[in-house]
């Protein structure tokens, strides 16, 4: 797949492919910068479909360049948003299949050939997502009081208490420990159950659903624990039901439920 020959020079160009569409309106791309400042976004016709592409400097888009970019939040964000802007603009004008960030070819001919090979998959994806949008649903465990550890001897206290502990103190300590642990497990199970409930409810009105990677607990302060990060493909005429469903689920579960969308159906154009 990677063909970085030694002959590659600094000014060699590559073709960045953003999305594949039915029949985009070229006007919607005019003001968008894409991922390079020197060149314009342009359509690339292939097999009855149109890809939105941009010529870029190959040296800026190597694997190594991306590895560096991945570790720089601001850089990554700039590219992610630039990509998303183009995809969103395309989708606003016609049915669109987004490509993942950083799909690049050594030139127009190679890109056209690769895209042509996948024409059937693009058509299938366009068909599957026609008239649908993607909606993200994130569920956070209900806020719970901190575990009751008031009676546990702290690290500082324990060694300081030189006198022999009262008989049974060790057992009581262990039982309290066990209680805290059981409470934690119960909360965890409850949270998972809430996640399943919410997922099942959204699946009912969705054409399709996917679980995404859970986000790590938020740092310091809020400490919200995410228990579901899912995304659903919902028919446009059913999108209005999402609001009521979300409210009902919030009331029923007490969980914090965040809905985002409508998204271009990023998550539903691949092999689902």
């Amino acid at each position: 797949m990677t063909e970085r020959g030694p002959e590659q020079t600094a000014d060699e160009s590559a073709l960045y492919v953003f999305a594949v569409c039915n029949a985009p309106d070229p006007a919607v791309f005019v003001r968008l910068p894409g991922v390079a400042v020197e060149t314009q976004l342009r359509p690339l016709r292939f097999g009855g479909l149109t890809a939105i592409v941009q010529t870029v400097r190959a040296a800026d888009f190597t694997d190594e360049a991306w590895q560096t970019r991945m570790s720089d939040r601001d850089e990554l964000e700039r590219y992610a948003r630039a990509h998303h802007d183009v995809v969103s603009a395309a989708a606003a004008s016609c049915p669109t299949v987004p490509l993942p960030l950083a799909t690049l070819y050594h030139g127009e001919e190679r890109a056209r050939r690769a895209l042509l090979d996948e024409t059937e998959r693009f058509r299938a994806a366009l068909e599957r997502t026609a008239g649908h949008c993607e909606w993200g649903v994130k569920v956070y465990a209900p806020e719970s009081p901190p575990p009751d550890q008031g009676h546990l001897p702290s690290r500082e206290e324990a060694p300081a208490a030189r006198s022999r502990p009262a008989p049974g103190a060790g057992l009581a300590y262990l039982e309290r420990k066990r209680g805290v642990q059981a409470q934690r497990e119960r909360r965890h199970e409850d949270a998972l159950r809430v996640a399943e409930t919410v997922d099942a409810a959204f699946q009912c009105i969705a054409a399709s659903g996917r679980r995404l990677r859970l986000h790590a607990p938020e740092p310091a302060g809020q400490g919200r624990v995410q228990v579901l990060n899912a995304t659903y493909l919902v028919a446009e005429h059913q999108a209005a039901e999402l609001d009521a469903l979300t409210r009902t689920l919030r009331d029923a579960t007490g969980a914090r439920i965040e809905v985002s969308g409508p998204w271009v159906p990023y998550s539903f154009v691949g092999e689902v």
């Binding site: 797949m1 190597t62 694997d63 992610a80 690049l104 050594h106």
Partner: peptide, 14 residues
């Protein structure tokens, strides 16, 4: 949504 989704087709560079 941008990283692990979409129609993944083999690219030349990344």
């Amino acid at each position: 949504r941008l990283l692990a989704t979409g129609v993944v087709i083999s690219g030349d560079l990344v």
